[in-house]
């Protein structure tokens, strides 16, 4: 039914050198501090490389478009997962109940520094534990 597309060797070589070039870009860009854009650039280069492999080496470009649809669907579902999860992590404490809106995860983690030290079985190992128990009783 479907005929196999025969890709000229030239195309393979061009794509391969493009991939090598982009690997170079990844290395080069790691020496440049772009602030929060660091991760964006790195992911962008990686995505372009992965797409080149999928489209040319894995023949997605010439294949049945259903397969392309499935490939794009997987990207879409990944996008949904990340985007909606960020709706949580980026908006923690958005009712103003917690003032530390920025860096919610690290700020929450700071709470653990105030806990009494315990050994692996949960037994207290210093004098703080009594205060902690008192607090519990009040609640």
């Amino acid at each position: 039914m479907s005929e196999h597309h025969i890709t000229p060797l030239k195309t393979y070589l061009i794509i391969a050198s493009l991939l090598l070039f982009l690997s170079g870009v990844t290395v080069w860009v790691s020496y440049v501090d772009l602030g929060p854009l660091n991760i964006v650039v790195a992911m962008l280069v990686a995505t372009v490389k992965a797409s080149l492999v999928a489209f040319f080496f894995m023949h997605l470009l010439w294949d049945d478009k259903k397969n392309l649809t499935l490939f794009l669907m997987s990207l879409m579902f990944f996008g949904i997962f990340v985007t909606i999860t960020l709706l949580d992590t980026e908006f923690r404490g958005d009712l103003g109940l917690n003032p530390e809106v920025k860096n919610p995860i690290n700020n929450r983690a700071a709470f653990y520094d105030t806990l009494p030290l315990t050994d692996t079985h949960g037994h207290p190992v210093d004098g703080h534990s009594d205060d902690h128990d008192k607090d519990k009783d009040h609640h």
Binding site: F77, I80, I84, L87, D88, T89, E90, F91, R92, G93, D94, L95
Partner: peptide
Amino acid sequence: GFLVWGHHMFTSGQSVFS
């Protein structure tokens, strides 16, 4: 079904927006 998973987490401390 892929867009509703957070309804299992209403008491987990996730943001009110989500």
